[in-house]
Computed example of a mutant assay.
Amino acid sequence: MEKVRIGIIGIGGMGTGHAKNIIAGKVPHAELTAVFDISAERLEWAKQNFSDKVKIFDDVDAFFQSKAFDAVIIATLHYDHPVLAIQALNHGYHTMIEKPAGVYTKAVSEMNEVALQSDKVFGIMYNQRTNPVYRKLKELIDSGELGEIKRSIWIITNWYRPQSYYDAREWRATWAGEGGGVLLNQDPHQLDLWQWTCGMPKRVRSFMSFGKYHDIEVEDDVTTHVEYENGATGLFVTSTGEAPGTNRFEITGDRGKIVIEDDKLTFWRLRVSEREFNRDFKGGFGSPECWKCEIPTPGENTQHVGILNDWVNAILHGTQLIAPGIEGIKGLSLSNAMHLSAWTDSWVDLPFDENLFYEKLKERIDNSTFKKTTGKEVTLDVAGTH
């Protein structure tokens, strides 16, 4: 196979972007051969803008049975990601899902089980993993240069959205349509990068406001405290209601401090570890010698195109993925635990009670404005898709 034939499910904003990148030759070893959507308007757009070589489908079963492609990109609403990924994998297609992996981990766990039993390449669109700044951060932490992590703080409040943004789509910022707010829509990349570099915490305590700055039913302001097995702590602060916002990620370790802000990585590097200095220094007042280092982060931030090329290369040559699909459950576990902590007003241990989260989410879906105004049902029974 010289080229991977790709079918796209969902040609809204993200799906259209992927389609255009493939057609433009930005993924050299891939070709677009099919698309599916439930929107007649989007299908008509596809007919007008894609060549006759791209088959257009309005029936998902016909799409999967067509064998008009080798691999599937799923770019739909959040709830559908696990459902469609399971179908794609069971039909024998390599699969790429957009972020987040899903809305609740019960569904994503089942998706992962199917993926692990499959011999197909399963990826997730965590395009921020291609950013040289975060790749360098992971390298510094994994190599031990920062030492044992003591604390991490990510303030990511430059997600400002006006009310008109939410009003533009009826499913946005609703429990039935989107499954959450800033944590599910804007922050999946940051939650993934947080756990990718610092690891998963052992427990979470979250405080959030629902519709604090907007006329919406989901969270638009979140402050979360986490604790790790080694005693380290972390803080995650996010909002869509602050302007101007901040994007600052700070990690303190035994051997210094790293700050990522304005796409720059700065390492305040201690010449000796703090623990060693604390043990051996006898002068009363004092602190370890520290060098401020502006760390170079060479390389191109290839973003979505980079993840697609990485996925296609893995299909063709068996290379290791930058963003394996089964890792999508980690960032989602953080957001689920945050929601559950806020809903129960208590600490939540990881792994958390998936059944309790599922029950609490379903209560909110049943009372969601999206469900009440459209009459649309949310299918939570992923097993029924096998």
Results as ranks from 00 to 15, higher is better:
M1H: 14
K3W: 03
K3N: 14
I9R: 03
I9C: 12
T16G: 02
T16D: 01
H18S: 07
A19K: 04
I22G: 06
K26D: 15
P28Q: 12
A30R: 07
E31K: 15
T33L: 00
V35F: 12
F36K: 00
D37S: 13
S39H: 15
W45M: 02
K47Q: 09
Q48G: 14
S51E: 12
V54I: 06
K55F: 07
F63Q: 08
F64Q: 10
F64A: 08
K67C: 07
K67P: 14
F69I: 00
V72Q: 11
I74W: 04
A75I: 09
L77F: 09
L77P: 04
D80L: 09
I86T: 12
Q87E: 15
Q87D: 10
L89W: 03
L89Y: 08
T95M: 03
K99Y: 02
P100T: 06
K106L: 15
V108I: 06
N112C: 05
N112D: 05
V114F: 00
A115Q: 03
S118I: 00
Y126C: 05
Y126H: 06
N127E: 02
N131Q: 07
P132Q: 05
P132K: 01
R135D: 04
E139R: 10
S143F: 13
E145S: 09
L146R: 06
G147Q: 05
N158S: 09
P162T: 14
P162R: 14
Q163A: 08
Y166S: 02
Y166G: 07
Y166C: 11
R169D: 14
E170W: 05
T174G: 04
V182P: 13
L191S: 01
L191W: 09
L193T: 04
M200A: 08
F207M: 10
F207Q: 03
F207K: 12
D215G: 03
D215M: 11
E217Y: 08
D221P: 02
T224A: 14
V226C: 05
G231W: 06
G231V: 11
G234E: 00
L235C: 03
G241R: 07
A243I: 08
R248S: 10
T252D: 10
R255V: 00
I258V: 10
D263Q: 15
K264N: 10
K264P: 10
W268I: 13
R269T: 00
L270C: 11
V272H: 09
E276M: 04
F285S: 08
G286W: 06
C290A: 11
K292Q: 15
K292M: 12
C293H: 13
N301V: 01
V305S: 11
N309H: 10
D310T: 05
W311A: 07
W311H: 14
L316Q: 15
H317Q: 11
H317T: 03
H317G: 04
H317I: 02
G325L: 10
I326N: 09
L332D: 08
L332R: 12
S335T: 13
N336H: 11
M338H: 07
H339Y: 15
H339F: 14
S341M: 01
S346M: 03
V348L: 01
L350T: 01
F357A: 05
K360N: 14
K362Q: 13
K362A: 02
D366E: 13
N367Y: 00
S368Y: 09
F370S: 03
K371H: 11
G375M: 02
E377S: 15
L380W: 05
H386A: 08
